[in-house]
Amino acid sequence: MKGPLASLKIIDFSTLLPGPFASLLLADMGAEVLRVESPTRMDLIRVLPPHDGGVSASHAYLNRNKRSIALDLKRPEALEVVRQLVREYDIVLEQFRPGVMERLGIGYEALKAINPGLIYVAITGYGQTGPYRERAGHDINYLALAGVASYTGRRDTGPLPLGVQLADIAGGSLHGVMGLLAAVIHRQQTGEGQLVDVSMTDCAFSLNGMAGAGYLACGVEPQMEALALNGGSFYDYYRTRDGRWFSVGSLEPQFMQQLCAAIGRPELAARGLSPKAEEQRALKREIAIEFERRDFAELCECFAAVDACVEPMLPFAEALEHPQIKARGLVTDVPRGDAGSQRQMACPIRFSAGLPAPRHIGAALGAHTEEVLQELGYSAEQVATLKADGVIG
């Protein structure tokens, strides 16, 4: 089994999270992904704790199913290897700041001259244009500038530092994959490659969704705890008597009725539709009282057979054991390359034709350098010379 993207061959110059998560999805779906890494400037994900057998668990996951070649891109011999690679690998994914690849001589225009059908995906914080194009940033900065953080949090404590990297993954990774695959379809229809400019800030801005649409069309500025879905209604988290939490999303009347009946307060159901902020706050207090009267286990039993959009908040260890997560096969065993395997999160996309089994965890730095060079036609003597000269690692 090869997977639906088995025809794609991708050179991945990215590091950290956004690009590697994007190429992980592509590799899981069958694409051949070759990571180009510096032999002297390590991807920091490789040393990020915790470690399993001396290998970063994050690196082992984000870079599974990919090969690694170590090239010093400051050396002309290494750049020549890249130029040869793009004759065969006709998709490039990179995550440098704008202008870096151009200064190295392997930017889009230079590589397009070698392979006119090249698809070149550049993931950056702020995009290839604009006054911030060369500015440094991280996930929290992109969410702040894009307006997302301004109404995500509590009035008395401020914006929330999210546990997942929303701009990195939903912005850079997922939009990067969408842009790449859209360019592939365009190339199949026209024969033309193109540059795909993915800005994590742009993508985070688009995630404003309903709140952004409301402001642009009606001038309603979204505020913390002021919208139906950000704490301004009973749609929220509620603490149990023993200090755990439940999520309540019973927005529709039929779900609200079941929620209120389950907690023994059916008279509260009619108040769920009130648009008045003070009435929503009062309703939240009533619901909170009922949840705080019961332990977590009691509430789990209470809502197990009730279709009310009410679910327990689970720590990751418990989420792994949830019957829905297990039934969907979201954990897989990935060969380590030595003896045994490592448990990892599986590809979340399901195909009726299936996907290939995971081949290996993230490879050691430059693990496939000699193999790839030999595929390009380099002799053993040439490889040895490049290694001795520090061009490859």
Score class of each variant (00 low, 15 high):
residue 6 A to Q: 10
residue 9 K to C: 11
residue 9 K to N: 10
residue 33 V to L: 08
residue 37 E to D: 12
residue 44 L to P: 07
residue 55 V to T: 14
residue 56 S to Y: 05
residue 60 A to D: 02
residue 65 N to W: 01
residue 72 D to Q: 10
residue 72 D to I: 07
residue 83 R to F: 04
residue 88 E to N: 06
residue 88 E to I: 15
residue 89 Y to G: 08
residue 90 D to M: 03
residue 98 P to H: 09
residue 98 P to F: 03
residue 106 I to Y: 05
residue 109 E to Q: 11
residue 122 A to P: 02
residue 126 Y to H: 02
residue 140 I to M: 13
residue 144 A to C: 05
residue 150 S to P: 09
residue 154 R to V: 12
residue 160 L to E: 14
residue 160 L to C: 14
residue 165 Q to D: 09
residue 171 G to N: 02
residue 186 H to Q: 14
residue 193 G to Y: 03
residue 245 W to V: 00
residue 246 F to Y: 08
residue 256 M to V: 03
residue 257 Q to H: 11
residue 265 R to Q: 14
residue 266 P to K: 12
residue 270 A to R: 14
residue 272 G to C: 08
residue 272 G to P: 07
residue 275 P to C: 09
residue 283 L to C: 08
residue 285 R to H: 07
residue 292 E to R: 14
residue 306 V to N: 04
residue 322 H to G: 08
residue 323 P to E: 04
residue 327 A to Y: 07
residue 332 T to M: 01
residue 340 G to I: 06
residue 342 Q to K: 08
residue 343 R to C: 03
residue 353 A to T: 14
residue 354 G to I: 13
residue 355 L to V: 11
residue 356 P to H: 12
residue 361 I to C: 13
residue 362 G to H: 13
residue 364 A to I: 09
residue 370 E to F: 07
residue 372 V to R: 04
residue 376 L to W: 11
residue 389 D to R: 15
